Simulated assay, not measured.
Amino acid sequence: MDLLQLRYFQAVARYEHISRAAEELRVAQPSLSRTLARLEAELGSPLFDREGRRIRLNQYGAMFLRHVDRALRELDDGRRALRDARDTGLGRVGVASETLLTITHLLGSFRAAHPRADARLFQSTAAEMSRQLRVGEVDFCVASQPLTGANLASIELAREEVLLAVPPGHRLDGRERVTIPELADEPFVSTRQGHWQRALLDRLFAAEGLTPLVSCEGDEPGASQDMISAGLGIGLIPAISRRAGTETRVPVAWVHVDAPDCHRVLTLVWNRDAYLSEAALKFREFTTSRPFMTHRLPAPHQERAHDPADTP
């Protein structure tokens, strides 16, 4: 068994697709298939269930993947530690977020304060962020919903109200507050399943025994206000957008939602077992030592172990 086999197996397990994994690894598909076959023969157990051209990670593969992820992460951490000790810079810090708009100014301020740090930014769904932390692709995630996985720690950065945005001239334009049942027949602009906006919308409606009517969904939460302004529907938008004065560029009317827990909680999440470079340590200190937003609801910085039983 060698590292090449393990890297190949990890990529195929992530995609559950030979051609996609081969494309990422930049190897020929037959070579990748032969490498997997040799690994399975050496282990004495199939790692994938094969149905024609489709493959699925089986129970033995899932078990083996956990150990492979851990082993490769340790090797990658060792390589990073050596590089950080050798280089004159502070090393690298990787940060993932569901929407880049949330942390654009944060990363800009951090780079200005620590120009020798190599800061890299990724846009990911909650599920993708959990995987990136597990395999060590990123050091931190700024998450708007709980992430699943063992050995995760988090610090609450901010807690803000989420408002209902409606197009100018809408029947709710001018209202101070609205209840969820009043929105039962309204078309919503939202994100796809897996993003915090959609999770919040589904949760608020489920609490009333209702299902939201989603007329437009996408992968970029930051585009929702533009679509609402264009009259494609109404939607849930964090209060930071209103405070930032975006309605001067993208006009919408704002309404408070009369429902419990209609807010967004931003947390900084990392893997307790992962190596953190000097740049990563400085990023954590930089992020948690100042208000994340100009106006926040009271939210003390408290580190806690992640509870996989948390619900979004």
Rank of each mutant, 00 (worst) to 15 (best):
V135Q: 00
A143C: 09
G78T: 01
F122T: 12
L90K: 07
E137H: 06
A119T: 13
D139L: 07
G91C: 07
V93P: 07
S97I: 03
L121H: 14
A71S: 15
V95K: 00
G136K: 00
A127P: 00
R73L: 11
F110D: 09
L121K: 12
Q123E: 02
L75G: 04
E128L: 06
A113V: 09
D84P: 05
I103S: 02
G94D: 09
I103T: 05
V93A: 10
L121R: 11
R116Y: 05
L133Y: 02
R80I: 00
V142D: 09
L106G: 07
T99W: 04
T88P: 01
E137W: 00
I103A: 01
D118A: 11
Q123N: 05
D87Y: 04
R120F: 08
T102I: 15
Q132P: 02
L75E: 13
C141I: 14
A143W: 06
H105I: 08
T125W: 06
A117I: 11
A119R: 03
L100N: 12
R134F: 02
L101Y: 08
D87P: 01
A143F: 12
I103R: 01
T104C: 06
H105M: 10
R111C: 13
G94W: 07
S97E: 08
V95Y: 01
R116P: 04
L100K: 14
A117V: 09
L90D: 04
R86C: 11
R70Y: 10
L106Q: 08
L101W: 03
R116M: 12
L82N: 10
A126L: 10
V68P: 05
D87V: 08
R70E: 15
P115E: 12
R131L: 12
P115C: 12
A117W: 06
V95Q: 01
L75V: 12
A143Y: 06
L75Y: 04
E74T: 03
Q123M: 03
T99I: 08
L101M: 11
A96N: 07
A81Q: 14
A71K: 13
L82S: 13
A117P: 09
A126T: 11
A127H: 05
A96D: 11
A85E: 09
L90G: 03
L72F: 09
T99A: 15
Q123S: 05
L107P: 04
A112S: 15
R120T: 14
E137F: 01
T88C: 04
T125D: 10
S124F: 13
A85L: 14
M129N: 05
V93S: 10
R79E: 02
A117R: 06
R131Y: 08
A119N: 11
R86E: 13
F140P: 01
L75M: 13
S109A: 15
S109E: 14
D76T: 00
H114K: 14
A85I: 00
L90P: 05
A119F: 10
D87E: 14
V93H: 09
R86L: 15
